[in-house]
């Protein structure tokens, strides 16, 4: 009796373990296209950081603890322009403010994670991480911590590693900058936008967010166009939503 019970537990543990490993690998696999898109930017960040007066250690440290590409680019760009340090910090914060919305939206997917899992997982919350997590949840697959961390660690190591390589070999890279890779980022983000086109109100949200962000860009300037444009799209979706209470939780 006890024996078979043990066997049962053992088996269950074994299956859980296999599922975790499978999820972890699936997460790494989800990271592959993102890694290809991110590689040039990690190298570019490292190279430009050193060019703007960062030590290699500082470039790597920034990637390792800020871990938010766009804001890091803004940060090193402002360092090159000799702007007051508090203003640089504030700009980094403004560029990253969108994560507040991501983290609020993600809560529905990670409700059953433990506290430390949430603390680690949210540290790794980036644009592609959020987009892929939302898509996975939408497909009805469970967003396990193992899947999330598989993708997250793969992206994290790529970002920190390429920043380091870029910082070390930056001089060479910048001297041969015949290839401008800046255009890759908008294409990459366009792909993310397109991947959500199955959602209700997708087209009006994209139209309103796009229009408001352009107006804000012209009137107030970056990086505010991101927060203001995004809030306009989210507000539209909330305003148009069917106000009747949800019939059941599905």
């Amino acid at each position: 009796m006890t024996n078979s019970l043990f066997a049962c537990f053992f088996q269950e543990g074994k299956i859980k373990e296999m599922e975790s490993a499978r999820d972890y690998i699936a997460g790494i696999r989800a990271a592959v296209p993102v890694i290809i898109a991110v590689l040039p930017f990690g190298l570019l960040f490292g190279a430009v950081a050193v060019d703007n007066g960062f030590a290699v250690f500082e470039a790597v440290l920034m990637s390792a603890i800020v871990y938010a590409g766009a804001s890091q680019m803004v940060g090193i760009e402002l360092f090159g322009q000799e702007i007051a340090p508090w203003l640089i910090v504030f700009s980094i914060f403004a560029v990253n403010f969108r994560h507040v919305l991501y983290s609020a939206a993600l809560g529905r997917r990670i409700a059953d994670w433990s506290m430390p899992q949430k603390a680690i997982g949210l540290f790794l919350l980036t644009d592609p991480q959020f987009a892929d997590t939302e898509r996975r949840g939408e497909q009805g697959k469970s967003v396990t911590f193992q899947w999330y961390i598989g993708m997250g660690t793969a992206l994290y190591l790529t970002w920190v590693g390429t920043s380091w390589i870029g910082a070390v070999f930056g001089k060479i890279a910048l001297e041969n900058r015949g290839l401008d890779v800046g255009f890759l980022l908008p294409i990459y983000f366009l792909g993310l936008v397109m991947s959500f086109r199955g959602r209700s109100l997708w087209a009006p949200v994209v139209a309103v967010s796009g229009a408001v962000s352009i107006v804000a860009y012209l009137l107030i300037g970056p990086p505010w166009h991101v927060s203001l444009g995004a809030l306009a799209g989210v507000a539209l979706a909330a305003a148009v939503a069917n106000p009747s209470p949800p019939q059941e939780l599905d």
Partner: peptide, 8 residues
């Protein structure tokens, strides 16, 4: 609407 709104 968050992903489409922000990424746009």
């Amino acid at each position: 609407a968050v992903p489409a709104a922000v990424l746009t």
